[in-house]
Design a protein around this nucleic acid. Structure first.
Lengths: 207, 207, 207, 207
DNA sequence: AATGAATGAGGCTTCATTCAT
DNA sequence: GATGAATGAAGCCTCATTCAT
């Protein structure tokens, strides 16, 4: 019973931390504020997490897990690796579009949290570009596209997505993030060598 | 004479600020440390710059100016817009490759420096993606590629570049950044619809 | 329990602030020193008061309240407005005589604390001279003295008192402040037109 | 020739110091600002005065000298000590009325300038109240008023004047300082025992 | 478990003073 | 004589962390 309560409190703190870190960055975020948003006290936060940095790390890990899980759920039932890559991209785009603050947390820095944290962030980026790269590898193996450096391609995909989202985040008059998707899809799929006909097919399905 | 000395000192401070901000981010950087690296005192920094934020802003502006100037010098004598875009990308890549710290400053964000700074950073990203977009517009006008949303394409190019550089920056064993260029070029040029033959031509010239 | 402790600490800080501000003036007082004298840390002070200025303001307000209350208690049971005025003056004189530092805080100014503070100081002076003026008004109404500008008279009384106390505060060999009271009383009462006989009566009572 | 220029520059610095100290108090005044208002540099100030405190002290002394000289010039041709006292008071009032800033410098503190300065300020107050006391002594000797503690009376006079001026200085809507003079004169002269008839005579002359 | 008071290192900034030119 | 760049101590304030209750 109390365990439950405790776990719930922990969760509330993570949620609050998410919100605060997203808005102020690691260095700018205050533990006080996290406590306040979690409807707890500063001491409460320190009961559940030994350190501001550990709190951030855990936050990053769990949030990343949720996001990766969501992507994997989305591409699970799909066979065509090209479509899988496209859906992965679209899913991430969609999540970010719906959660501006999460986007900031992931895409905007967290400089100042020490090397341990930087490593975690890198791992996160690597997971996403790795998912893309895996689909591209499969596409190469299936003969759908010519061989290429899929690692770099994965990074490029993720980076392109990242920038578009970031600019949208910062814009005064954002418009709809989804409007950028067709161009992005065309650019990226064509970039790795998918022929135009197939792209048109994919675009058609998901219109 | 003194003016010269003063100007030189100012420059030294900017250099030091560059280094310190790059390593610790805006919030994490200390004015004390900037002074120390500039072989000056804290007060010396404040004689030349009224505020930590203003110092950062000026740094950003002047560094951006230098970089943009370098890119424009590089593409100046070239006519073919496709080649220009490629050269612009290559130049930025090269500069970053030679200055890891500058790359961090530009690409890793600096949450906590206030909205004025965020705006400046956005302007910077916009300048670079704008340069790309301009070349793509010219290429469309010249009939080299099919029409597309060049704004989004510019962002995507810059973002792809950004991510590749970032990952290289963070890698334990970086390898050579230039090795990623052929893949990136292929991906991006093919992505906007440049035909493979022309890409091969460009790649050949610059090999 | 904790509330009590906290309140007590708050009080200790106010006491310390009182002492430090009195000795160094607003600008010259250091928050560090306030903490030290309160047997707390700088942070402790800032836990209870958001700002040096707010601390000063609160100090001023509460001390003024106490002083006014004391004066009002002293004149409460007295009917004759002339006597009331005299007692009010005597009370303030007595309090100052017993608390040199408080006197400095009230009478020596605190340039540099911002307009909000200046206003509060003015309000304080106005309260005291207002109390005097009220008694004089009553005395006029009762026909004990001729009509006169009681506002100016109140100021003059307070100012005369202020200067005498100040000089006593600053003197190398202060002597007893109370020794000045008979002269002051004579001067001020006669000044507003109280006849000598009545003055002698008052002076007799309180000798 | 150059001596003249130097002396003139010194004078300009004193003038500027006067203005700056008046506005910000001792602690709040900046040497930089003094230099700027004197159309000189900080270094220039330090060439003429070894220290901020010495500058302030000299300023105080010379300004006081001027003021005392003015008072003495005003009362010089007058014989009746009562009138002399009254004229002295009126002169000071008039000067303050015309120079709000000077008034602040003299009447508002200068806490924070160290004991040497406090002593000087005291000396200044003592000079003025001494002038009054001297006239009162003469009046006693001449049999115009009954004997009394003229030291205390002098202080009281100066203090009353001080407070009235201060309140006028701080008021939102000051009105004319001179309007307070009749009440003040009546209060103070009657206070020391001048009979009403004579007061009426004095007041009549100067109306 | 939780609270919130307390701590103290460290951060940005100001400013009196010095000194090379 | 004068300038203004430079110094560094000191000031106000923030905030991660600890701890008595």
């Amino acid at each position: 019973m109390q365990q439950e309560r405790s776990a719930k409190r922990r969760e509330r703190i993570l949620d609050a931390a998410f919100s605060v870190f997203s808005q102020h960055g690691y260095r700018g975020a205050g533990v006080d504020e996290v406590g306040r948003q979690a409807e707890t006290s500063k001491g409460g936060v320190y009961f559940h997490f030994p350190t501001k940095e550990k709190l951030f790390l855990e936050l990053l890990r769990t949030t990343a897990d949720r996001l990766v899980a969501k992507v994997e759920r989305a591409i699970g039932p799909i066979d065509d690796p090209i479509v899988r890559a496209d859906v992965a991209l679209g899913t991430v785009l969609g999540v970010f579009a719906g959660h501006r603050t999460m986007a900031r947390l992931f895409l905007i820095d967290a400089v100042g949290a020490g090397p341990e944290f930087q490593a975690e962030l890198q791992r996160l980026h690597a997971r996403f570009s790795g998912i893309i790269a895996a689909q591209l590898d499969a596409a190469v193996a299936a003969g759908f596209i010519e061989p290429l450096d899929t690692q770099v391609a994965g990074m490029a995909w993720f980076g392109a997505l990242d920038e578009v989202v970031m600019r949208w985040l910062m814009a005064d008059d954002p418009g709809r993030l989804e409007d950028a998707q067709p161009t992005l899809r065309l650019l990226l799929l064509r970039g790795v060598g998918v022929d135009e006909e197939r792209i048109a097919g994919i675009a058609g399905e998901r219109r």
